[in-house]
């Protein structure tokens, strides 16, 4: 048994040292400076540098793909920063990141997707690699630590492949794909991808609601205002998931500590207006939604 234990320990040490070495040595060489998530650097910079009052969009990719902040800015004469990027970064990150830059008399427009899912570790490792500053907005549970380190390790491999073979980049999910305000525009002239409507799982939103309400309290404490908006949603997916969406809306109407300024069907459009996801509007859809949003905000402000 002694022989086995010695060899097992030696082998394990060899593996651990090699894995750590890969992260330490490879990671700086393949830093994702132009990755999609690296756009947080520009967004955070704009958030902190803009004067108040300003409009801050907070949420997942439904906002990143589907609004024209410049048009909204012109209409209301407020500077706008669109902080939204990807639902997979998790609610906690989105809210913490935005809260850091909220100042007195700012207007926060929050629009989450319906799944309000747990953060994707792979995405968080990419984020922390591209934008080390983002680390302060992320909290990991103890059970997430080992999977997180494995994800980080694998990021080095996938990033290396991306660096070696440029064909693995799709030219949509890139840092340069955003406008100054933070809207994604790299997809606007691309052809729609055929979509299948996914069925929403029944989710217990209690923790998420608590997180959002804590955020609302903190924003109010800073002297700013928050409004909640239901996201845009592809017509067929909306029809398929109507019950879950209705339950979601009822729950939010009952418990959210800020005004909700639209209904779930406000931004529901024909499937042809969506690019590559049930939340991602294409060029035409983005303009239609922006006009509708301007109309709603006109009545609200």
């Amino acid at each position: 048994m002694k022989k086995f234990l010695i060899r097992a320990i030696l082998f394990s040490l060899l593996i651990i040292v090699s894995l750590v070495a890969i992260v330490v040595l490879v990671s700086p060489l393949v830093r994702g400076k132009n990755d999609y998530v690296a756009a947080t650097i520009d967004k955070e910079s704009r958030l902190h540098s803009l004067p108040s009052p300003k409009i801050i969009f907070v949420g997942g990719s439904n906002l990143a793909f589907g609004i024209n902040s410049s048009a909204i800015s012109k209409e209301f004469n407020y500077p706008v920063v669109n902080m939204s990027l990807h639902g997979g970064l998790g609610l906690s990150f989105m809210l913490n990141e935005a809260l850091d830059g909220v100042k007195k008399s700012d207007i926060v427009l929050l629009s989450t997707e319906y799944y309000l899912d747990k953060p994707e570790l792979k995405l968080l490792t990419q984020l922390m690699d591209a934008n080390p500053n983002a680390k302060k907005y992320i909290t990991l549970k103890p059970e997430e630590l080992i999977p997180f380190y494995i994800s980080d390790l694998q990021r080095c491999v996938t990033s290396s492949v991306k660096v070696i073979g440029k064909q693995f980049s799709d030219n949509i999910y890139i840092r340069n794909g955003f406008t100054v305000e933070g809207d994604l525009v790299s997809h606007l002239n691309k052809k729609n991808v055929p979509l299948v409507s996914p069925r929403l799982k029944e989710i217990d939103y209690t923790d998420d609601l608590q997180l959002i309400n804590t955020f609302i309290d903190a924003v109010k404490k800073k002297g700013a205002t928050v409004y909640y908006l239901f996201p845009t949603y592809q017509q067929s997916t909306f029809t398929l998931n109507k019950k879950v969406v209705t339950d979601f809306a009822t729950l939010f109407h009952k418990n959210l500590k800020c005004p909700i300024i639209n209904t779930p069907d406000t931004f529901v459009y024909n499937d042809s207006l969506y690019f590559n996801s049930e939340y991602h509007l294409n060029k035409q859809g983005r303009e239609i939604r922006t006009q509708k949003l301007i109309e709603i905000l006109g009545k609200t402000f």
Partner: peptide, 11 residues
Amino acid sequence: VLIIFLLGKFE
């Protein structure tokens, strides 16, 4: 073992 860690799908 390295390949399992580097290329494996753990999600």
